[in-house]
């Protein structure tokens, strides 16, 4: 790959009428990096992530994801990314294996590959017994792990996770992060938004968004030093309060 960055964003802006949801943000994310995208509710995280995934048209600025311009080549971007949103992306009225089969097919995987990957995935998640269970009948933590695995089924370069661990216990969250580390080790770039500051510590670098702008960007340790804080919580509160 000629480019050292997975994601390159310059002055990306999104306006809804007179309201600026995302205000000239700029950053880069390296290949294989776990990049935490933090901010209070309404700070513009979801809007930013939606623009990067080709779901929302930017008002201005420039963004390249997986080497493709999100303005001009949104469909090429989509081929190379995975996406998991806070709303559940799996079909509640399909079984575990049907969901895997469907998404594999949509991304153009061969049937043989889908079946092979299904087995690997069920083995890894310890979900073999639940293969024919409807998604609506399995616990939330399993759904999230499965949704993540389905999002990277087609081996994307980058995966976008929009508050992936909302509403589950710390142990399940920890297990979820094990999956993220494993994917990152395999070279997948992770772009993750979260509300949990302990999760922020797991990231290689984080950015903190306040009112549509990125107010701080760097490794967690560096940010703590810069803002003279004990933990990320304190950094976050200092920034958010202005």
């Amino acid at each position: 790959m000629e480019n050292e960055f997975s994601i390159e964003v310059r002055d990306l802006t999104k306006m809804f009428g007179g309201f600026t949801a995302v205000d000239h943000i700029s950053f880069e994310v390296r290949h294989g990096e776990i990049f935490g995208f933090l901010g209070a509710n309404g700070a513009g995280k979801t809007t930013a992530i939606r623009m990067l995934c080709g779901l929302s048209l930017p008002t201005s600025g420039k963004a390249e994801v997986a080497g493709y311009d999100v303005f001009r080549k949104p469909e090429m971007v989509k081929r190379n990314i995975g996406y998991m949103s806070q709303k559940f992306s799996l079909y509640q009225d399909l079984t575990v294996s049907e969901n895997i089969y469907f998404y594999g097919g949509i991304y153009g995987l061969k049937r043989k590959v889908i079946f092979q990957k299904t087995e690997e995935l069920l083995e890894k998640l310890d979900l073999k017994h639940a293969r024919n269970t409807l998604i609506r009948d399995i616990p939330l933590g399993w759904k999230q792990k499965l949704a993540f695995s389905v999002a990277i089924l087609h081996d994307p370069q980058i995966v976008f996770l929009d508050e992936p661990t909302g509403g589950v216990d710390p142990i399940t969250r920890r297990q979820f992060w094990d999956l993220i580390y494993e994917a990152a080790k395999a070279g997948v770039t992770i772009f993750v938004t979260t509300h949990y500051m302990d999760e922020a510590e797991y990231c290689n670098r984080i950015s903190i968004m306040v009112d549509g702008r990125i107010e701080a960007l760097g490794p967690p340790a560096e940010l703590k030093t810069r803002f003279q804080s004990q933990d990320m919580d304190e950094v976050f509160v200092k920034l958010a309060r202005g």
Partner: peptide, 13 residues
């Protein structure tokens, strides 16, 4: 309503 259409829109479908 369910939000699943978003997941489809982010695929190359």
């Amino acid at each position: 309503e369910l939000g699943t259409i978003e997941q489809l829109n982010v695929t190359p479908l």
